Computed example of a mutant assay.
Amino acid sequence: MTETSAPRLLGPAEVRELAARLDLRPTKQRGQNFVIDANTVRRIVRESGVVDGEVVVEVGPGLGSLTLALLEVGATVTAIEVDPLLAAELPSTIAAFAPAQADRFQVVLADAMTVDVVPGPAPQALVANLPYNVSVPVLLHLMALLPSLEHGLVMVQAEVADRLAAPPGSKTYGVPSAKAAWFADVRRAGAIGRNVFWPAPNVDSGLVAWTHHAPPTDEVTREQVFAVIDASFAQRRKALRGALRNLAGGSGPAEAALLAAGIDPLTRGEALGIDEFVALTIALQEHAVVPGSADE
């Protein structure tokens, strides 16, 4: 891409000008905090590993700051935006700031929590500044919906980033950590200051990078494993023998399944990695009936 054809990125003046023209008032309900720093969006794209020619799905593009940075490196971008006002404006912004890349961009008006089809070529990467109040369910939903995804990077609330990347046994390890591990190897990829947003959020932000891997089993379903994960953490301080009692149909079947999986019945859920949850789910199939669960 030649320098003259490269997109212009949005800075504080451009973001505020766009917002004023749209009479836009960012809402906490939709987690609307727009990045106003070009160096930050370039850093996000760099950390994501997206390269020229890749197809990227972006969630919550807002006014287009990150979208333009993705187009700058040669990516094709499908942006999912729930706000009709922002979704309608995005094509004009791309045409104005990145006219040479406009044919590599499309916007989909949809809720990323419930979208069931992402049109266009299968995306290889997910890069997004996720709305903080729904970041985990959105990420898990898209990981399940789009098996073509090979890698990605999301910006989320710092505490959520810690939970997503936490290893078994740590204080922050929980349901998000275990479920994300079904799909990918997850790692923390840095922190983002509050002053790069408008309006500035009242929480710190963190980057989470991930690399897809094959499902850890085909003997039981993801829904069955997730049901066991949910039950294991529903009463976090309880030993698994008690935590799984309702799911297994009693403490006896729960203990038998745990022993069959090679897990001490007095172990807590926070000690198990995804492979142990898989082994436990398989054992529970032999000792109890394990229903499926919805992604959370």
Results as ranks from 00 to 15, higher is better:
A6P: 06
A6T: 06
A6K: 11
P7W: 05
E17A: 15
R25V: 15
P26N: 01
T27I: 06
Q32L: 11
N33R: 02
N33C: 10
V35R: 00
D37Y: 13
A38P: 15
R43H: 12
R46H: 06
V51P: 06
V51T: 15
E54N: 02
L68Y: 02
V73H: 03
G74S: 01
A75Y: 06
T78G: 13
T78N: 10
A79P: 09
D83H: 10
P84K: 06
E89K: 03
L90G: 08
A98P: 10
A98Q: 13
A98V: 11
P99E: 00
D103N: 14
F105D: 09
V108F: 08
A112W: 05
V115A: 00
V115E: 05
V117Y: 01
P119D: 13
V127W: 00
A128S: 15
A128I: 07
A128C: 12
A128L: 11
L130V: 01
N133H: 15
V134F: 10
S135Q: 01
H141Q: 11
H141N: 11
H141L: 11
H141T: 12
M143R: 12
A144G: 12
L145V: 15
L146W: 11
S148I: 07
V156F: 00
A158F: 02
A158S: 12
E159S: 06
V160N: 03
R163Y: 03
G174V: 05
A180F: 01
A181D: 03
F183P: 14
A184T: 14
R187F: 00
G190F: 04
G193H: 05
N195K: 04
P199D: 13
P201Y: 04
V203I: 14
G206Q: 04
L207A: 12
V208G: 14
H213I: 09
P216I: 07
P216T: 11
E219N: 07
R222P: 01
E223H: 09
E223F: 03
Q224N: 00
A231I: 10
S232V: 09
F233T: 05
K238Y: 01
A239Q: 13
R241I: 01
N246D: 15
G250C: 08
G250P: 13
S251V: 12
P253L: 05
A254V: 03
E255T: 15
A256I: 07
L258Q: 05
L259T: 13
A260Y: 03
I263H: 06
D264H: 08
D275P: 02
V278E: 03
V278R: 00
L280W: 14
T281E: 07
A283R: 10
A283N: 08
L284S: 12
L284N: 12
A288Y: 08
V289E: 15
G292Y: 08
A294T: 14
